[in-house]
Write a protein that binds this DNA or RNA. Sequence first.
RNA 1: GCCGAGAUAGCUCAGUCGGUAGAGCGAAGGUCUGAAAAACCUUGCGUCCCCAGUUCGAUUCUGGGUCUCGGCA
Length: 313
Amino acid sequence: MSNKIIVIVGATASGKSKISLELAKKINANIINADSRQIYKEICIGTAKPTNQTQETVFWDEIKHFGFNLCGVYDNFNVANFLDYFNEKAEETFEENKNLILCGGTGLYLDACIFGLSKIPEISVETKQKVRKLYEEVGLEELAKVLRQNDKITNLDEKNPHRVIRALEVFLETKIPLAKWHELNPRTKTNFEFEIFGLELERKKLYEKINKRVDFMLENGMLEEAKFLKKFNFKDEGITKFGIGYRYLIYFLDGKMDFDEAKELMKKETRNYAKRQLTWLRKDENIHWINAEQKEKETLDEILAFPTEKIDF
RNA sequence: GCCGAGAUAGCUCAGUCGGUAGAGCGAAGGUCUGAAAAACCUUGCGUCCCCAGUUCGAUUCUGGGUCUCGGCA
């Protein structure tokens, strides 16, 4: 049985999903998607999900896809949940005697799949609420002070609310600093092997594709999804985890912004996001970069031409 | 055609009482272990429109020119 996983990475709109699909047909593979927005059942268009099927295992062109529709918009879901799911589905795929393609743009999820995560106990809802409430009451600077009084070793950016909140949650819940947990339970890899391919486009061309994709989403019902999300009254910070655009569409629905302004901001922020993804991927020397500007078939052939002693297609 | 206002970073503009300049936005680069399309960090030499004059020195003052935007015809 194979234990090699083909990973297809790249910035948003670089064509990962399509290439993965075509590759899967050639090598008899299942696909697992590492995308932190496509996990939500209720939203499809603004997350670039390839179908609007709502079941957890989706068939697209007869290829089995995992990683969509894992939870609802009001559920808590995080990397650790994704990693568990990934390991389960990878086992399942290899038991079927099929290949597996991991396709995704969420760097954190990909890293977790490839390098593992330190085991840290789950944080209770009470602790989470307590820390968040404190953050709202006293602000970031004070929160960082509270953290420092308790945890002197975790090295983090104290201007970054997410990191400070996380570190404080871990300490309050376990009485052990986050950095200590990392030391006690270092990341452990699974026994899967990974061969990573990155789809590469000239920046200008990538940006054009992003702009077009935003137009496409808006023409195909993303606004309806924004109306749906609006009902939940997520705060600005909460809404962004579903995708860049929804926040601005809700501003538009609230009359705080005109439609074109919302559209342009969506495009700009998606471009900025793509840049961040590339920054993340660039540092990984194990990625084989493939030209994604050529015809799909040629890109595919380039992947398939990869030395067979390394990958048993 | 006349009368005003303007021309400075990719864009919008500030400024230099004459000693070659700085904000916002955009852009680029970076960080990343349980909200990650999140959150955060760093980065500003540009014929200061052109030509001449005054001056030790002009992006700044003076004259002329070019272009842009208003208003009046």
